[in-house]
């Protein structure tokens, strides 16, 4: 019964179809970014760099790329620091209200972006930083920190609990242990977390749209083009963003998974 071959093959074909559904929009976007028609359809028009050219020569794109890079770099750094602190605290300590502490640190991804966007817009306006690049950096830090925490926590999970005590036992203070043992051990996951939070920031549009003011990031530019007419420039920018984030994700994965297992029996 369990080895009923035809059912297994049907299931596999089904799985393939689901993957086709999931990847269809991604593939279409890349294909159409090289397609000459203004309104893409079948059969395809001829090959063109036209849309990339257009994007390349638009100063607004470059401003957006600059903003995105600044925000992504700063937010990923801050988010990774906060994620690391949370992960280490969770790994090392038990204390009263620890669940409340973890909830506070981990809940942001469960709040719809549109609600966070409105809440942050209002709060940042009150603080007087709305529309500044800081607003965007802070928002993306809040959004990215839980992901950084999850990745680094998983890595710390693999650490022999005795490793930290062993360092103290050999004469390292808690601070020295952090510097010479914990951080070196967690380093692959720290790099992963940097890449992934960068990718999160590079992609986020809802909060960015609300709080960024004139400092538009790339996704905000895409959103604004989308609000206008059908314009295959979106495919060109989209493919560029896709290439960038995928590079980050692949780097992150390399550091997460190909690093040899380092726990010792």
């Amino acid at each position: 019964m369990l080895n009923d071959k035809s059912i297994v093959w049907l299931l596999r074909i089904y799985l393939l179809l689901v993957f086709v559904f999931i990847f269809m929009p991604i593939v279409t976007s890349v294909v159409f970014s090289f397609n000459s028609d203004r309104f893409p359809s079948l059969p395809l028009g001829h090959f063109t760099w036209n849309w990339y050219d257009k994007v390349y020569n638009d100063p607004e794109t470059w401003d957006a790329i600059r903003t995105s890079i600044i925000v992504a770099l700063s937010a990923s750094l801050l988010a990774t620091i906060i994620g690391f602190c949370t992960a280490y605290t969770d790994f090392r300590y038990n204390f009263r209200f620890k669940n409340a502490y973890l909830a506070l640190a981990l809940l942001p991804p469960t709040i719809p972006l549109i609600i966070l966007a409105l809440a942050m817009l209002a709060w940042f306006s009150k603080l007087g930083i709305s529309g500044q690049i800081w607003a965007l950096i802070i928002a993306h830090t809040v959004l990215g920190a839980p992901f950084a925490m999850a990745i680094i926590r998983l890595r710390l999970q693999q650490m022999d609990k005795d490793l930290e005590s062993a360092a103290w036992n050999l004469g390292a203070s808690e601070w020295a242990t952090m510097r010479y043992v914990i951080i070196p051990f967690a380093l692959p996951s720290i790099i992963s977390a940097l890449c992934l939070t960068m990718a999160v920031s590079f992609d986020e549009f809802a909060i960015a749209w609300f709080v960024s003011g004139l400092n538009k990031s790339i996704p905000v530019v895409i959103l604004e083009i989308l609000q206008g007419n059908v314009d295959p420039q979106i495919n060109a920018i989209g493919s560029f963003v896709f290439a960038t984030t995928m590079t980050l994700v692949v780097i992150a994965q390399l550091f997460l998974f190909t690093k040899k297992p380092t726990t010792i029996k």
């Binding site: 022999d160 005795d162 490793l163 005590s165 062993a166 360092a167 043992v181 070196p184 380093l187 010792i264």
Partner: peptide, 13 residues
């Protein structure tokens, strides 16, 4: 008072 651990706790990195 150095300790030799059951897990050895050698630093893998």
């Amino acid at each position: 008072t150095p300790l030799v651990w059951q897990t050895l706790a050698l630093f893998p990195f």
